[in-house]
Amino acid sequence: MKRFTLPGFGLTLGYTLVYLTLIVLIPLSALFLKTESGGWGHFWQTITDPRVVASYRVSFGISLVAALINGLFGVLAAWVLVRYRFPGRRLLDALVDLPFALPTAVAGIALTTLYAPNEWIGRLFAFNEPLGAWFSPHTPFGAWLTTQAWAKSYLGPAGLRIAFTQLGVLIALTFIGLPFVVRTVQPVIQDLSLDVEEAAACLGATRLQTFTRVVLPGLLPAIFTGVTLAYGRAVGEYGSIVFISGNLPFKTEITPLLIISKLENYDYTGAAGLGFIMLLASFVILLISNGLQAWDNRRKGVA
């Protein structure tokens, strides 16, 4: 690239930097400065409060599970959408981006209505329904479940509960992370050369061996990147979760919700401290994702 042939460098870069500084950088630095003004002792107290720590488990832990589910189904969906021809393929392909375009509040109330007890899918898990009967206390499995402490929040009086439990949070986080793995893996599958797979088949590999030993290793960087992006998106998610989680402290309360409740109690330094922690987490996730992409580019350069 020749450096300064075309006009407009000063104007566009200047505008970019000013706008970025005003809208993003100065406001984000307020997070740090406000946290500091409250003193680091107070900051430490805020971020290690047991209720806050429990919210990390929900925000960071369940997000990880959701990202891994998306990793599995995302690769499968990308493979099917690129390699197979079947009616409805274009429709499915267009629908992949829905969680990206649909407002989170709409997703939140829609998923809650699907999975709440007595509603669309939630109803199927009532103990007197064929699906829910598996979890009924009258069956051996259900009886065993009633003795398990972890299962307590999932067992309602009349059926298995999905909405307003961690399972509901998991479903919402899986929904919003869905496009990321599909969209990062899709172009890589598209660019795979069939010659390599043919060579593997010629050498006597079964189709499964070809996939796990030849195709999958080439997809891994893209899969890792996609999972990291889905994770990054899920960690900060707020809109879809507040409806389906029920916001039970220590159980389904997420960190962004705690930021809002601190703001409502005029605890600005506490809110800033939690915001600072979440910002740091986002930075780390973004760095990992950039690192993965750089690693992938290097690998391609060598190959």
Binding site: P27, L31, G236, P256, A271, G275, I285
Partner: peptide
């Protein structure tokens, strides 16, 4: 890219702080 990966709640919080 950063605003895309920051929690939307933080996107509101920073302007309240200012």
């Amino acid at each position: 890219d950063l605003p895309l990966w920051v929690s939307p709640v933080i996107g509101g919080l920073i302007y309240v702080l200012i």
